[in-house]
Amino acid sequence: MDIKTRVIEIIAEQAMLEPGDVQLTHTLADLGLDSLGLVESIFAIEEAFDITVPFNANEPEKSDFDISSVVTMITAVETLVKDQK
């Protein structure tokens, strides 16, 4: 399974949606994901890809992990997988 499909699956599960309902342009708010849903998604991503995601909930803007939309998160995971593998 490619990274994009897996990340969408993880986000869909947290948002309690079908993967087909998650669009690349969706924001966390569009998906109804709050701060707890976000940290749980990041944990699931770390477990799925065996990577460490640098993310501090107090300063999300300072993180290299861009959470502004589904596609930015996919891109960030792809970069982390490349860098950490």
Binding site: V39, I42, F43, F55, N56, A57, N58
Partner: peptide, 8 residues
Amino acid sequence: WEGLRVMS
């Protein structure tokens, strides 16, 4: 506590 990602 690390898990919550609220620690400095």
